[in-house]
């Protein structure tokens, strides 16, 4: 099995690569973790991970700037229906649109806009930086065996306001429920950073490597 982690010049990809390698090794899963900026490597991968940090528009621009990458993603995720995981802004890009700084079109896999979080408690800081627990909205294979008490690491100011409640697998309480995890068919996305979320993160990555949507 080959897992493509898409390199489009966004953020800390080393940690993501290392976390996937470790999860595969510890679970005894034979997986080649392929950090790649080549569209053809993504189109033929068995599983696809789209990371992303920074601003929505910048990430979209970065993705568009890689020749053939968006087409490869559509082919492998939509036509071939291979398991896909978006992380942080990579998850946000699954939305219809991002409204950070400017309006940017997303990949339109999860209906809804990415909007600035407006916590009811004015004392809460933006961005949300740090560890928080998840409130599960429904069961999902990627959370199998993961206790609800575990924490995930968040760094974000915006969240995906999903139109269809069924797409929201987990929320995080930050002055109200903010979207923490979305899924629709073979496509899943984490607003938090599994690669930084220690026990929860490694378990979720392991589940992703075994996922048969």
């Amino acid at each position: 099995m080959r897992v493509a982690i898409i390199d489009y010049g966004s953020g800390n990809l080393r940690s993501a690569t290392k976390a996937f390698e470790r999860a595969a090794r510890e679970a005894g899963i034979a997986a080649e973790i392929d950090l790649t900026d080549k569209a053809e490597r993504v189109a033929t991968a068995d599983r696809i991970v789209l990371p992303g940090v920074g601003a929505y528009a910048d990430c979209r621009r970065g993705l568009d700037a890689v020749p053939g990458m968006v087409e490869a993603l559509r082919d492998v995720v939509e036509a071939k229906a291979r398991p896909f995981l978006g992380v942080c802004v990579g998850m946000q890009l699954m939305s219809s649109r991002g409204l950070e700084k400017t309006t940017t079109e997303g990949l339109c896999w999860i209906k809804g806009d990415v909007v600035l979080m407006t916590p009811a408690d004015q004392g809460l800081k933006i961005p949300q930086i740090g560890w928080n627990t998840l409130d599960r909205r429904r069961a999902h294979a990627l959370f199998d065996g993961i206790p609800e008490t575990l924490h995930a690491y968040f760094v974000h100011s915006y969240h995906l306001a999903a139109e269809n409640p069924d797409d929201v697998v987990a929320t995080v309480d930050y002055g109200g429920p903010m979207t923490a995890f979305v899924a629709n068919g073979n496509k899943a996305g984490a607003q938090f950073h599994p690669e930084k979320s220690q026990t929860l993160g490694l378990a979720l990555i392991t589940n992703f490597l075994r996922w048969k949507p």
Partner: peptide, 8 residues
């Protein structure tokens, strides 16, 4: 901040 995002 413009280049890498405020969060970073």
């Amino acid at each position: 901040a413009d280049k890498f995002g405020n969060q970073c």
